[in-house]
């Protein structure tokens, strides 16, 4: 059974429909890339999975219907979100950001600091004073502190310097190899996505138009739907 099962997912922003039938499935320990051009519904799909916006269709985590749950319960059930734009708690320090989100499990302040040593160095610093890359690491660390079974990274490397991007991708690879966490990735770098993802799902106008193992994604398909 899939950890996350999404079928015919539809969602609206007020009166305008944004998702017209998204299908995707994720198993434990699997990394899936959610791809598509800008405005095709990737972030909306993530918001619907996290119950931040209402949706219809099938949406289950480990067989349990997520539609019945509020956002915080979805997070507690094991969906860790690293939102687009990082969105750390600016007034809290690095450690406080991590403690506020902490749930029992393998991920602790120590293990997060081991994954991102920079966070350990900046432990007492307010999140607002961190660089963009450090804030991104903090956002990932904060999601990990919830000890998720599914980690969603929405544009985790957007607007970051190449060196910092490498650090983030290295951390994602470590998460894939060292932990059993399933990862849903949204990113613009096809090269990095291809190297780390097992599967890919492509959205076009709020609908799944292609899905399958990453190594079966042809150049023609990616150029047609993703533009790269």
């Amino acid at each position: 059974m899939s950890l996350l099962q999404v079928q015919n997912l539809c969602a609206h922003y007020g009166s305008s429909q944004a998702l017209f039938g998204v299908d995707l499935a994720l198993s434990e320990g699997e990394v899936t890339a959610l791809m598509g051009r800008n405005g095709m519904g990737k972030s909306t799909t993530v918001k619907a999975i996290c119950r931040m916006i209402p949706s219809t269709g099938t949406l289950t985590l480990n067989g349990q219907d997520l539609h019945a749950w509020p956002s915080h319960k979805v997070a507690r059930a094991g969906v860790g979100l690293v939102p687009e734009g990082r969105r750390c708690f600016a007034d809290l320090t690095v450690t406080e950001n991590l403690i506020a989100a902490a749930r029992p499990g393998d991920w602790t302040l120590k293990t997060v600091s081991a994954l991102f040593p920079r966070l350990g160095e900046r432990a007492g610093q307010r999140a607002a004073s961190l660089s963009g890359g450090e804030q991104q690491m903090l956002a990932i660390g904060r999601a990990l502190m919830t000890n998720p079974r599914l980690l969603i990274l929405d544009e985790a490397t957007e607007g970051l310097a190449p060196l910092i991007r490498q650090e983030i991708w290295a951390a994602v690879r470590r998460l894939k190899t060292d932990t059993g966490v399933a990862i849903l990735l949204i990113d613009k770098s096809l090269k990095e996505l291809s190297s780390v993802s097992d599967h890919a799902v492509i959205l076009e106008r709020g609908k799944t138009v292609w899905s399958g193992p990453m190594d079966t994604l042809t150049r023609e398909t990616s150029e047609r739907f993703v533009g790269v």
Binding site: M52, H72, R87, L92, A100, R103, T146
Partner: peptide
């Protein structure tokens, strides 16, 4: 405190 800064963000980390 996190909830004060953003209730939506706080919810996504299980609060």
């Amino acid at each position: 405190n996190a909830t004060r800064q953003s209730a939506i963000r706080a919810e996504t980390v299980g609060l």
